[in-house]
């Protein structure tokens, strides 16, 4: 059974000019120990999907439909106090900017012990011992001294290591990592991805990795979901999605990335831009930019259809 099941999730923002539907019927599952990558461009709804699962939607955003199940139990309708127990204990979170995740006025060790003691029954001494062990596990040398240091005394890469320790220290079964390496330099990014991979593998933790960087997904994820305008355009094993994309948007996205291994004279470009939430076209949201568009795409919205190795929301694959 899947560890996490998201069924027909819908997220809305009521505004003065009407309700904006930012996520419109997203469904996927994550198996125990699996890394699911979620990619898309800004505004595609990938971060909101993560926030909705973990119960951290910023008001006035709200879940307007669908269900989120963890281990077969619904978690999308829990009262805030129950959700707080799940957050940290069952689901850990890593965000893009380590400085806003860490509390600047407490030493990192205290933030770790507080998190662990909230969720696990531990004595002060045990919690402290574990905090030091976690700092060393995430590659912070001299953990015993650094445990008393404040977040500002760490560099960006080291801070993100602390954030990873914080997300994993209560041994959650699922980690939602939202752009965990976007704020970091490439050499540090490689270290952090490697760390996240090895720690989650050792603990059998499932990961939902949200990022705009296809390279990070290609190296890390088992499966990948490509989002466009609040829906999943394509989902499938990472190799299939990268090498033989079935959705024209995925194909365009892959062609537009400059690859380091080969040089092309011109990048493939998708003309235009993703539609705004208040102007999503009828039918398939990608139809105005799609090179293969035909009449049906303009009126009828496709759901995910079998497309060889992957599933793609595209009428080209309607058998």
């Amino acid at each position: 059974m899947a560890l996490l099941d998201v069924e027909e999730l819908k997220v809305e923002f009521p505004t003065r000019r009407g309700v904006l539907r930012a996520i419109d019927g997203v469904s996927f599952g994550i198996e125990p120990g699996e890394v699911l990558g979620v990619v898309g461009e800004s505004g595609a709804g990938k971060s909101l999907t993560g926030a909705a699962i973990i119960g951290l939607l910023e008001p006035p955003g709200r879940i307007a439909g669908g269900r989120v199940l963890l281990d077969g139990k619904r978690i999308d309708n829990l009262p805030p106090a129950r959700m707080r127990e799940i957050r940290g204990r069952q689901i850990g979170a890593i965000f893009q900017d380590p400085l806003t995740t860490l509390d600047p006025v407490y030493p990192v060790g205290r933030q770790l012990t507080e998190t662990m003691q909230t969720h696990l029954k531990l004595s002060d001494a045990d919690a402290r011992r574990r905090a030091v062990a976690w700092l060393e596990r995430v590659g912070i040398p001299a953990g015993a001294q650094r445990v008393n240091a404040y977040p500002h005394e760490f560099s960006g890469g080291m801070r993100q290591r602390v954030v990873i320790a914080l997300a994993l220290c209560a041994e959650p079964r699922l980690v939602i990592a939202d752009e965990p390496t976007t704020a970091l330099d490439v050499s540090i990014q490689a270290q952090i991805i490697e760390l996240l991979k090895s720690l989650t593998r050792d603990h059998g933790t499932s990961v939902m990795l949200v990022t705009h960087d296809m390279g990070v997904i290609a190296e890390t994820a088992d499966r990948v979901a490509v989002m466009y305008a609040g829906r999943i355009a394509e989902i499938g094993p990472v190799r299939a999605v990268v090498k033989q994309p079935a959705h024209p948007y995925t194909e365009g996205l892959m062609g537009s990335i400059p690859w380091i291994e080969r040089k092309v004279e011109r990048l493939r470009q998708i003309d235009g831009a993703m539609p705004r939430l208040n102007a999503i076209p009828p039918g398939c949201a990608f139809n105005p930019r799609c090179p293969h568009v035909f009449d049906r795409c303009r009126v009828e919205r496709p759901d995910l259809l079998d497309a060889g190795a992957t599933r793609a929301a595209c009428w080209l694959h309607d058998a």
Binding site: V186, S187, Q189, A190, Q191, I193, E194, D213, M214, G215, V216, A218, E219, V238, R239, V242, I257, W259, I260, E261
Partner: peptide, 14 residues
Amino acid sequence: AIPDLDMVGGRTPV
């Protein structure tokens, strides 16, 4: 350090 799109893997982070 650049993520490998051919997914051959085996790079050494520095």
